[in-house]
Amino acid sequence: MPGPEGFAYDVRGGDVVITHHGRRATVLRGAAATGFLADVEDGADEQELMAHVTGNYRRGNERTAKDHPRNRGR
């Protein structure tokens, strides 16, 4: 399964603005912004980290949910 892509971040003052394909996804402030920047400096995969922070990541249950009776007609 391919990893997340299309995320970017910009530091504005003490805030971190995370965008996904050019659209603002979230803004991190305070301790969350500091922790995010520390993780980036430590060499964490930026795309994975931003996907996790924004909540835009796969949980592994998509195939199971697709086969659920209420979703079969979609």
Rank of each mutant, 00 (worst) to 15 (best):
P4N: 02
K66C: 03
A38M: 10
V17D: 02
T54R: 01
G73R: 15
V27H: 04
V27M: 09
V17R: 05
R74G: 01
A32I: 00
D39E: 15
A65R: 14
N71Q: 08
V11Y: 06
A8N: 15
L28M: 04
P2W: 02
D10W: 07
R63Q: 06
T26H: 04
V27R: 10
N71E: 09
F36A: 08
F36C: 10
F7W: 12
E5D: 12
R63C: 03
R72C: 01
A51E: 01
R74M: 04
H20W: 14
H21Y: 13
A44S: 09
L37F: 13
G43A: 01
D67R: 15
A31H: 15
R12V: 15
H21F: 14
F36L: 12
N61D: 15
M50E: 11
K66A: 06
A8V: 15
E46A: 09
P69D: 12
Q47D: 04
V11C: 11
H68E: 14
N56Q: 07
R24N: 01
N61R: 08
G35C: 02
A31C: 05
I18D: 08
R58A: 09
H52G: 03
V16M: 08
R70A: 06
V11Q: 14
R24A: 00
R58F: 10
R63A: 11
A32Q: 10
L28N: 10
R63P: 01
M1P: 05
H52Q: 00
N61G: 06
R72Q: 13
N56C: 01
Q47I: 05
A65V: 11
R74E: 07
E41M: 11
L28T: 03
A8S: 15
N71R: 12
V16D: 05
E48D: 08
R58P: 02
H20T: 04
G14I: 03
H21V: 05
D39V: 04
A8G: 13
P4V: 00
R74S: 04
E5V: 11
P69L: 04
N71Y: 12
G13N: 12
T34E: 14
V53E: 13
V53S: 06
P2L: 10
F7Q: 13
N56G: 00
G6K: 02
Y57Q: 00
E62W: 09
L37Q: 15
D15Y: 03
H68I: 08
L37W: 14
L49C: 05
R12K: 15
R72L: 13
G22L: 02
G35S: 12
A51H: 01
P4F: 01
G22D: 04
G13W: 11
A8Y: 13
T64I: 13
T54G: 03
E41S: 12
E5S: 14
D42G: 11
G60E: 05
V16L: 08
R59V: 00
V11D: 09
D10K: 13
I18S: 07
Y57N: 03
G13Q: 13
H68T: 08
